[in-house]
């Protein structure tokens, strides 16, 4: 357990220093690459990773490169090209890279591959798991506290374990505030289908839900649009953001967002790698390193009762200290209950 704790302390120092950089004395010429399977202009998951790569460049003076890949065959090719070119660290930003990462890892033992949300582990293939459920739990508390109907909704994309985990945590957070709360759940089967997400949200609102959280990518616009239309029709309805700080996306209806601070996590991983502390086991980044959090929208802070805010703050502290353990769905090789 030495490695994770070293990682945590490094991560905490990165978050404390922030993005200002400047006083970095590290002279090791690190070469870091990023692979994404979507455009880094998405203002979310991929954009966060690209910002992380840029932060590694400015903060650590690393040489960086990025490639957007589309097919599993391209994943292999990009890993091989970067590894053969002598890159030390490759961030593969999505579970979809895990099989290709294992193949490339065997061929190039001197290259370390970090797979965001991955499930397979090797000496030089390391899943980076964001404990988004810890932010989602706090969002669930906010949802139950805000709801007047006692019904809250969750609209998801593809029902993979990390997404399911955020919803189990959301449910648990909601029950912590209101044990009688009803929680509706819909998976549309698509991260980016705006129309399907909107339809699912409308259906949940019609069943009485008045606070809706999502776990989709570009489809979140559909969720927010449905909530806006419900508000326009005279119902008090709120939305909650997920993955990145979406409070600005629809500041009139989004009360808060469960966020992952990907850039800071990436820099911390790079630093830990330079210390020789990365390999052989998954890295978990959650709220005790402040990588994951729940952020209230300042524009709507007045609608959140003060005692609810205090309870959320208390739970955040308890999660950070380990006193409160948020439910999650395990999916990494070697984890309890996972083959």
């Amino acid at each position: 357990m030495n490695r994770p704790s070293r990682f945590l302390s490094i991560l905490a120092s990165v978050v404390a220093v922030g993005c200002s950089g400047g006083d970095s004395e590290v002279d090791v010429a690190l070469r870091a690459a990023l692979l994404t399977s979507g455009p880094v202009s998405d203002a979310g998951w991929y954009a966060g990773a690209y910002d992380g790569l840029k932060l590694i460049e400015s903060f650590l003076g690393a040489q960086v490169s990025h490639q957007q890949t589309r097919t599993p065959a391209e994943f292999d090719e990009a890993f091989l090209a970067y590894a053969a070119d002598g890159y030390d660290l490759i961030f593969a930003h999505g579970f979809e890279y895990q099989d290709a990462a294992i193949r490339a890892g065997e061929l190039f033992p001197n290259t370390t591959i970090i797979v965001s949300g991955g499930g397979r582990v090797a000496a030089n293939v390391v899943p980076l798991i964001f404990r988004l459920e810890e932010g989602s739990y706090l969002a669930g508390m906010a949802a139950a506290g805000l709801s007047r109907t006692g019904i809250v909704g969750m609209v998801g994309g593809v029902a993979i374990p990390p997404a399911q985990g955020t919803f189990r945590a959301f449910e648990a957070g909601a029950r912590a505030i209101d044990p009688e709360v009803r929680v509706l759940e819909t998976f549309t089967g698509d991260w980016n289908d705006v129309a399907a997400a909107k339809e699912a949200t409308v259906a949940q609102i019609n069943r009485g839900a008045d606070v809706i959280i999502h776990n989709v990518d570009a489809a979140s616009f559909g969720v927010f649009q449905a909530v806006r239309e419900s508000v326009a029709a005279g119902r008090t309805t709120w939305a909650l953001g997920m993955n990145s700080d979406q409070n600005d996306v629809a500041p009139d209806v989004i009360v808060g967002s469960a966020v992952i601070r990907i850039p800071e996590a990436f820099v911390a991983v790079a630093l830990a790698w330079q210390e020789g502390d990365v390999g052989g086991e998954a890295i978990y980044a959650g709220s005790n390193q402040q990588v994951v959090d729940f952020v209230i929208n300042p524009a709507l802070a007045h609608v959140v009762p003060l005692d609810l805010l205090e309870r959320i703050d208390l739970s955040r502290t308890q999660i950070r200290s380990g006193e409160l353990v948020v439910p999650r769905v395990a999916f990494v090789e070697g984890e309890v209950g996972v083959r």
Binding site: S65, H66, Q67, Q68, T69, E74, A81
Partner: peptide, 10 residues
């Protein structure tokens, strides 16, 4: 692919 990696072309 190489253009993306080496020349930063999107």
């Amino acid at each position: 692919g190489a253009m993306q990696r080496e020349a930063g072309v999107p």
